[in-house]
Write a protein that binds this DNA or RNA. Structure first.
Lengths: 329, 329
DNA sequence: CTGAAAGCGCTTACAG
DNA sequence: CTGAAAGCGCTTACAG
């Protein structure tokens, strides 16, 4: 910039004015500056600009896994909102490791992102207190923050699960198995809670072996399904706690001689093309992302209101697998 | 930092040393600085740091659509490599609009990212010349750059397509339809080229109506498939130019009285669970992303070699739909 | 309409 | 072991 000013024979401020399209420069001066810019291949350094101005016009998105089909539309929605607000987007995956989440979040704060959308891996976010105090806007999505008060956007996981299990019960099922993610993950806990509520509301007992929480690996899901389908009181229906588990369940049931009903939490592509089509409780990841980003930019626009907690509904989509009647054993 | 120095009664440089873990500070001084840091809630501003140092320790990834299941594993691979190289990652979607690609790329350059991984939407990248001259490292993935010499990582689209079509021919098909993406998109052009090569190699003519290029909307694909399946010389097999088209094709064929063989370019989740399983030519998006990022960081580590063009193989995965014999009409 | 000075928050190069 | 000065590339607040 100094070089440009020297070459054009003007002051630094005049170059700045031209580069930023500010008024108060004669056409003649401007063209002289422009040719100097071209001749020198000058490109404004936005980092320096940012250092002087308050905002960095960038936000960060920290999620569990960028490649997860549930999170990628959410990311895209956040990105679209960032773009609409003239912000650039940093993204990073925590891989469900709390330390990694924290490391990423703090690295982004050190870059002075204006705000953060976080899908938390950890359950203690007190490490964010100094950042919040310093004015960084933060919105949590999909799961709530731990020990800190911040905007949060969630799906009604328990409600969606209740609907799913009530649907199975309405179709005649009495012995329903649930296989979910690890205890401690908020969504996993909420979904098993909804399952229990629906069973209780229908006056149905839950046998000891019908609930299984743990890693969503195909191996574990296969073992647990085989166990629940065997024995003297086999389940006649499954409610699956997330899309990874559901996909494995579809594979298992495809090879299973006795049909069992199946409802999965989270929709997935081609669920309607399988035979039978897979009935699911669908979240709306795009709306989750959009809502979170909107909340964030409201804060950045100066909204001074207490943290909000938004809960979006989940929707039952019937496609066949959840409407299979119980097999009489 | 100034405040911290004042409070601890030391010089600026000493604070800097403590914050960066540099040697040459007594334990006693260090602890005084640390308590000042805690008391004041000091957080280092990496933007200022970056302004002084050369590198920003950030790279940018510009792709077509963050939510596309083909690109999300690629993104994740780039992200993993960025992390391994202590870099943060900016992501942005061009939505296949060249102007948007350019806008994003230049915004990232203005932030002085160290390098860029680009899945190009446009076919003229001369706008990058000043950036390259200024030392920004750039790697193109999935599609080549236009009018500029840079590292490029591609899949052997024509080769994969030849294999697919040869496979259909080996299974007895003579009339094979191809539905692909818009003419001008490099991958689309290469795939149709492979199709033509395979037909020619087998001495088979290609009727006028057997090749259709255009938007990958379900509506268009349905219309074109119906057209190719009708008439006096209906096709007995389809080769589909990308995953979007393939998915629609599966839907159409599910309702089709006369079975037709199908091979799709690009793998997709659950392809094996459909009946019949969908035979595909699979790219390796993770390897594409990883290779591109590795090339980028080689440059950033100072590798001074002419631009490379890496071509990764595509792999035929047979699952049933591509092994259906032609129906005798 | 135009520009010189001070400063954003750090680091580099140097001197004590 | 420690610190004062200069500077990274820009903008803000002011004066001409």
């Amino acid at each position: 910039m100094k070089d440009v000013a020297a070459r054009a024979g003007v002051g630094l401020k005049t170059v700045s004015r031209v580069v930023n399209g500010e008024p108060g420069v004669t056409a003649e001066t401007e063209s002289r500056v422009r040719s100097a810019i071209d001749a020198l291949g000058f490109r404004r350094n936005d980092s320096a600009r940012i250092l002087r101005k308050g905002r960095t016009a960038s936000i960060g998105l920290v999620l569990e896994d960028l490649a997860d089909p549930f999170y990628s539309p959410l990311s895209r929605a956040v990105e679209d909102r960032a773009r609409a607000n003239a912000s650039l987007l940093f993204t990073g995956s925590s891989a469900e490791v709390p330390e990694r989440e924290q490391e990423l979040v703090l690295a982004l704060c050190a870059r002075r992102v204006d705000g953060l959308v976080i899908i938390p891996a950890g359950d203690d976010h007190r490490y964010l207190e100094p950042e919040l105090a310093a004015g960084v806007a933060v919105v949590f999505v999909d799961r709530p923050a731990g020990h800190i008060d911040a905007d949060t956007v969630l799906t009604d996981n328990a409600g969606g699960s209740r609907d799913a299990v009530a649907h199975l019960i309405a179709h005649g099922h009495r012995r329903i198995g649930f296989i979910g993610d690890q205890v401690g993950i908020h969504t996993a806990d909420e979904r098993v809670r909804g399952y229990r509520q629906a069973m209780e509301a229908a006056g149905l007992p839950i046998a000891a072996g019908w609930v299984s929480m743990g890693p969503t690996t195909p191996e574990r899901v296969r073992v647990e399904m085989a166990r629940m389908l065997g024995g003297s009181e086999p389940v006649t229906a499954f409610f699956m706690g997330n899309n990874r588990v559901t996909v494995t369940a579809v594979r298992v049931l495809a090879d299973c001689p006795r049909p069992a009903a199946l409802i999965g939490f989270d929709d997935f592509e081609l669920a309607d093309l399988l035979r039978p089509g897979v009935t699911v409780v669908a979240q709306d990841p795009i709306r989750l992302g959009r809502t979170a980003a909107d909340l964030l930019f409201r804060r950045l626009d100066g909204a001074d209101e207490p943290p909000r907690r938004v809960e979006l509904p989940a929707r039952l989509i019937t496609r066949g697998s959840g409407e299979i009647a119980p097999t009489v054993v």
